[in-house]
Amino acid sequence: MTDLLTSARSGPAPLIKGAPAEDTARRAGPAVVRGTRRRLGPGRAVPFGRLIGPVLLVALWWAASASGHLDPRILSGPGSVLSTAADLVATGRLQDNVLISLQRAGLGLLFGVTAGVVLAVTAGLSRSGEYLLDGPLQIKRAIPSLAMLPLLILWLGIGEQMKVTVIALGVAVNMYINTYASLTSIDSRYVELAEGLDLGRAQFLRKVVVPGSLPGFFVGLRLGVTSSWLGLIVVEQINSTSGIGYMMFQAQQYAQSDVIIVGLVAYGIFGFASDAGVRAIERKVLSWRRTLAG
């Protein structure tokens, strides 16, 4: 790695006095002969390129349905799903369920992110905090939040408090693991430099800890957003009377695959949009980094 960096900085080998130009170019390598540099990165980003995959998936679904290869009793076609979605919007049923689901996911995400960051900072910046918190949280990571549903139902019942708690637990673990790993991976030389400059605690947190932990924080946030939607899908099918999951569960009883797909599409749109939003904030906040993602 060092040799590569050294050779890259030094540039092409100089011409040897008295040697033929062709021989010198041959020994200098193909880069000198062609005058170009090989690209090793993923290439230039395309605006809205992440929409290509979903659009192709919908196109394949539409083609399979139109050609008759897709049995509508098993999976409704896009036209039927759009018609059903329009009916649900016209009656207000879809909007009501969507708002309730967004409220549950939003509260779970808020509480989970707050708890995860506080625990990560406590364990990452204090030995006593690490000894007290890291072990139990690593054990919790090995236990899926959904596996705790029976116990949480026993403690909290089957109301909104239990649903939000299940979502928050999944989010908090993701936030803690990634933020804590980012904090403990900060180069100790920066800490020594801060001590040498006699920085105060607040300055140390602002100039060293926050920039060093932000990459891990955003990774945890993206995983936490995904986890909030996964948890929401499950809890809304447990004795719920509202929400997208409840609407899908009711549709299952009457074999309404089009209504089920409308719910799945709604989950997918919200998940994709929320992840894209986190990505946009991450690019803006971490604009000082140069990465392969562009």
Score class of each variant (00 low, 15 high):
residue 178 N to L: 08
residue 178 N to K: 04
residue 178 N to T: 08
residue 178 N to Q: 11
residue 178 N to H: 12
residue 179 T to A: 11
residue 179 T to C: 10
residue 180 Y to C: 01
residue 180 Y to D: 05
residue 180 Y to N: 10
residue 180 Y to Q: 07
residue 180 Y to S: 05
residue 181 A to R: 04
residue 181 A to H: 02
residue 181 A to I: 04
residue 181 A to V: 06
residue 181 A to G: 07
residue 181 A to E: 04
residue 182 S to E: 01
residue 183 L to E: 05
residue 183 L to K: 08
residue 183 L to F: 10
residue 183 L to T: 09
residue 184 T to I: 15
residue 184 T to H: 06
residue 184 T to E: 07
residue 185 S to W: 01
residue 185 S to C: 04
residue 185 S to I: 04
residue 185 S to V: 05
residue 185 S to D: 13
residue 185 S to T: 11
residue 186 I to C: 01
residue 186 I to Q: 00
residue 186 I to D: 00
residue 187 D to M: 06
residue 187 D to R: 12
residue 187 D to H: 11
residue 187 D to K: 06
residue 187 D to I: 07
residue 188 S to V: 12
residue 188 S to T: 13
residue 188 S to W: 05
residue 188 S to N: 10
residue 188 S to I: 09
residue 188 S to P: 06
residue 189 R to E: 14
residue 189 R to H: 11
residue 189 R to V: 12
residue 189 R to Q: 13
residue 190 Y to D: 00
residue 190 Y to C: 00
residue 191 V to H: 11
residue 192 E to W: 09
residue 192 E to V: 05
residue 192 E to A: 14
residue 192 E to T: 09
residue 192 E to C: 07
residue 192 E to P: 03
residue 193 L to I: 12
residue 193 L to R: 03
residue 193 L to A: 14
residue 193 L to F: 09
residue 193 L to N: 06
residue 193 L to G: 02
residue 194 A to G: 14
residue 194 A to M: 08
residue 194 A to D: 04
residue 194 A to K: 01
residue 194 A to Y: 00
residue 195 E to P: 00
residue 196 G to Q: 10
residue 196 G to Y: 09
residue 196 G to N: 15
residue 197 L to R: 11
residue 197 L to H: 12
residue 197 L to P: 05
residue 198 D to S: 15
residue 198 D to W: 04
residue 198 D to I: 10
residue 198 D to N: 14
residue 199 L to M: 13
residue 200 G to F: 07
residue 200 G to A: 05
residue 200 G to P: 05
residue 200 G to E: 04
residue 200 G to D: 11
residue 200 G to C: 06
residue 201 R to T: 14
residue 201 R to Q: 12
residue 201 R to A: 14
residue 202 A to Y: 11
residue 203 Q to M: 14
residue 203 Q to N: 13
residue 203 Q to Y: 03
residue 203 Q to A: 15
residue 203 Q to V: 10
residue 204 F to D: 01
residue 204 F to W: 13
residue 204 F to L: 13
residue 205 L to M: 13
residue 205 L to W: 07
residue 205 L to I: 14
residue 205 L to N: 03
residue 206 R to A: 15
residue 207 K to T: 12
residue 207 K to V: 07
residue 208 V to I: 14
residue 208 V to D: 01
residue 208 V to H: 01
residue 209 V to I: 15
residue 210 V to S: 08
residue 210 V to G: 09
residue 210 V to R: 11
residue 211 P to A: 13
residue 211 P to Q: 10
residue 211 P to K: 07
residue 212 G to L: 03
residue 212 G to H: 00
residue 212 G to F: 03
residue 212 G to P: 03
residue 212 G to T: 06
residue 213 S to L: 15
residue 213 S to Q: 12
residue 213 S to R: 09
residue 214 L to S: 07
residue 214 L to M: 15
residue 215 P to D: 10
residue 215 P to Q: 09
residue 215 P to E: 09
residue 215 P to W: 09
residue 217 F to I: 09
residue 217 F to A: 03
residue 217 F to D: 02
residue 218 F to W: 05
residue 218 F to T: 03
residue 218 F to M: 04
residue 218 F to R: 02
residue 218 F to P: 00
residue 218 F to I: 04
